[in-house]
């Protein structure tokens, strides 16, 4: 555990909590892509199956359980409790275009051809593209509330910090997880355009972030 990894995990947690509280307090999930949230719940589910097979640390177990609980609670808020506010018209990204290639790739390129390994690989690949329905929705509606932008900022920070973590681990331990690193780089690239918009519009302007 290093400072980049720890702050990355904390940013990830903050992002998930920001989103959950936003929906809970405003009693609305307007502007939020339910599809992205279902994909993230699927990411956590398929990756954390090792909760049942291997123990790493109390920190690891607690964080996994918290991520899972929050992910499913958020999905529950969007599709059940506050489903009247769910904007399914704008959330029109075709997720099969992500799921099919990601599933195919996880069968082709993995560390071992076993069910758990393939599901873990699937989760890594899926996480790298799971935010696309949300970014697509923002592009389609042309704007995002600043709180949604804060959520995306913390998710992006989490990714960037994990890149720093991998650089650090490679230099100090010689640790190198090829699948995670390559997917992580791809995932972080998706946030670059958003980072630019965040710093030029949300921080300088007020309220909503509009796309050109």
């Amino acid at each position: 555990m290093n400072i980049f990894r720890l702050s990355g995990d904390v940013c990830h947690l903050i992002a998930i909590i920001i989103l959950f509280l936003k929906i809970w307090r405003s009693k609305s999930c307007a502007g939020i892509s339910g599809k992205s949230q279902v994909l993230f719940a699927l990411v956590f589910t398929t990756r954390y199956l090792d909760l049942f097979t291997s123990y790493i640390s109390a920190y690891n177990t607690v964080m996994k359980v918290v991520y899972l609980l929050l992910a499913y609670s958020t999905v529950g808020l969007i599709f059940f409790r506050f489903r009247n506010s769910y904007d399914s018209e704008s959330d029109s990204f075709r997720v099969e275009f992500l799921l099919v290639p990601v599933a195919g790739l996880s069968f082709l390129e993995n560390y071992a051809f076993t069910p758990l390994e393939i599901l873990w690989t699937f989760s890594i690949y899926l996480e790298s593209v799971a935010i696309l329905p949300q970014l697509f929705m923002i592009t389609k509606t042309g704007e995002a509330e600043s709180i949604t932008a804060h959520y995306l900022l913390f998710l992006g920070l989490y990714r960037a910090l994990y890149l720093a973590n991998w650089l650090w681990r490679f230099h100090t331990e010689g640790f190198y997880d090829q699948i995670a690193v390559v997917s992580g780089v791809v995932q972080t690239i998706f946030y670059c355009d958003f980072f630019y918009l965040y710093f030029t519009r949300v921080l300088r302007g007020s309220g909503k972030m509009s796309l050109p």
Binding site: R5, D9, H12, D50, I56, S57, N60, M63, K64, Y67, N110, Y111, A112, F113, E117, W120, Y162, N165, F175, Y176, D177, Q178, I179, A180
Partner: peptide, 10 residues
């Protein structure tokens, strides 16, 4: 098969 690293990250 590729070499399998320890999966201690979240």
């Amino acid at each position: 098969e590729n070499q399998k690293p320890q999966k201690d990250e979240l």
